[in-house]
Design a protein around this nucleic acid. Structure first.
Lengths: 189, 189
DNA sequence: CGTCTATTTGAATGTACTCAAAAGCGGTGG
DNA sequence: CCACCGCTTTTGAGTACATTCAAATAGACG
């Protein structure tokens, strides 16, 4: 069987028989989105868990004061959703938009629940995915509270070179939690 | 069968037969620790996943500049470890110490691996635990980059009243990522 | 009671934001 | 292909937020 990118991603952590692959793919949907398309709007209930087959996206929050904060960028081979909204089925904290024309595979909330029952190995798969996501966010918290903005900017450049290519300075600033003006002044030095 | 706190915690998300409980408990160890005892030192390989039966703990990092940053506080009914070190079996980023005399249940890394195989339901359990932990950390990142220190302090007080009772101002400051002097000046207003 | 640490206070300094304006850049339509 | 428009990036001045350092006060604990 030809393995799409998402099957390769899954098989980094669990192995699947051909019939399991078929069952999984039957639940999966694939769709193309143009540039700057919103796939989730803050306040909606998030029903889908996305995987980036191609392209790039950004999830972000706009607070009461109107301040925009980028939570994550996602490029090819990344999973993405508003996890808070998805797992609790409560209004989304985040909006998600494409940064360029993108192809997304996704599982509906109900499909994932069925998948966990039909192929319990997926519990393991997502246990590992969430475990890694938890570690990643915890290390980001540590960066946020322990080092200077300049250091965090440099770490971002080193850690995510593929993302840097695709996003604006303004968006990086909103990921770091500083103003574009201040990030600009950092670069000068 | 009498259900200890940890069994109750687990059965919030999965149900266990008496024999499964017995298997699980056979892998679990329980130990008392005095106040201010280190259960993990930054740099060590973290071999254990802890559950707080009683007491309270703090995980924190000290960076090259000597700055101490609190990553989390854990009270009764919380799971705790250096997840980065535990899952990757690499040197710990964090130290963990008791804030008061505490009773901890814990699973050794190898025991947990066996547990996943023997009772696959635990994949589901920890999938949910890590999913929630991921959401929690992501929301903390959002707070860190989007709102003022004063607002974050107030949210901390509201969100974790049981923790506030047990920790010093200095430790809260290091959780928020500000100096104790500055937190003191915030309180004055 | 004495010691050690936490907390408060204040002055000086550095970090980051706000606001406004200019310069740069990319996409679109003529 | 060029001119224009809108958005991003830069620059700078003024202000607000946060740290550093030092010293005084208050609490915790043996």
């Amino acid at each position: 069987m030809f393995d799409s990118l998402i099957l390769k991603n899954i098989q980094k952590h669990i192995s699947l028989s051909d019939s399991e692959k078929a069952d999984f793919l039957a639940m999966l949907k694939i769709k193309d989105f143009p540039k700057k398309e919103f796939i989730l709007q803050q306040g909606q209930i998030c029903k889908k868990l996305y995987f980036v087959e191609k392209g790039s996206l950004r999830s972000f929050n706009i607070n009461e004061a109107g301040k925009e904060s980028t939570i994550m960028f996602a490029v090819q081979d990344w999973w993405l959703t508003d996890m808070y909204s998805f797992v609790n089925q409560k209004p989304a904290v985040l909006s998600i938009e494409t940064l360029e024309p993108s192809c997304l595979a996704y599982l509906h909330f109900d499909a994932l629940e069925k998948l966990y029952i039909k192929i319990p190995k997926f519990e393991k798969f997502f246990r590992i995915i969430f475990q890694n996501a938890y570690v990643r966010e915890q290390l980001r918290v540590l960066d946020n509270i322990s080092i200077s903005t300049e250091q965090r900017y440099n770490r971002f450049l080193n850690k995510y070179p593929h993302i840097v290519e695709k996003v604006s300075q303004k968006q990086i600033a909103s990921y770091l939690g500083v103003t574009p003006e201040f990030l600009s002044s950092i670069k000068k030095n």
